[in-house]
Simulated assay, not measured.
Amino acid sequence: MTEPVATPPRGPIVFVAHSGQVSGAEKVMLDLVRAALADGHAVTVACPAGPLVDRLPPAVDHLVIDHLGLTGESGVARIVGGTQLIARWFRTGRRLRTVAASPGVSVVVNSLNALPAVRLAAGTRGMSWLVHDTVITGRQRAVIRLSRTGIRRAVAVSDATAAPLRALRVPVDVRHNGVAWPVDALPDTLHTPPVVGMLALLTPWKGHRVVLDAVADLPGVRVEFAGGHFPGDVDHVAALRARAAQPDLDGRVQFLGHLDLCEALRRFDIVVSASVEPEAGPLSVLEAMAYGRPVIGTDHGGTTEFLAGGAGVLVPPGDPAALADALRRVLSDAALRARMVDDARRRVAERHDLSVTLPAMLADLLR
Results as ranks from 00 to 15, higher is better:
209 R>K: 07
172 V>W: 02
188 D>L: 05
327 L>H: 05
13 I>E: 00
305 E>G: 00
96 L>R: 11
315 V>K: 00
103 P>V: 06
181 W>I: 00
232 G>Y: 04
318 G>W: 05
293 R>T: 02
17 A>C: 15
269 D>I: 02
249 L>G: 07
43 V>A: 06
70 L>V: 15
324 A>D: 06
65 I>G: 04
19 S>K: 15
70 L>N: 15
77 A>F: 11
40 G>P: 06
74 S>Q: 12
130 L>P: 09
42 A>R: 13
79 I>M: 15
316 P>H: 00
275 S>C: 11
345 R>M: 00
87 A>I: 02
299 D>P: 01
180 A>G: 10
174 V>T: 15
355 S>K: 12
177 N>Q: 14
354 L>N: 05
286 L>W: 01
109 V>D: 01
280 A>W: 04
1 M>E: 12
139 R>Q: 10
296 I>C: 01
17 A>R: 15
78 R>I: 12
342 D>T: 14
184 D>C: 00
305 E>Y: 02
326 A>H: 01
344 A>T: 00
244 A>E: 09
46 A>W: 07
109 V>T: 04
11 G>H: 09
14 V>F: 01
34 R>L: 06
266 R>I: 01
3 E>C: 04
9 P>C: 01
81 G>A: 15
29 M>Y: 02
182 P>Y: 01
113 N>S: 13
149 T>I: 08
344 A>Y: 00
77 A>E: 15
362 L>E: 03
107 V>E: 07
106 S>P: 03
322 A>R: 14
256 L>V: 05
267 R>D: 00
8 P>A: 13
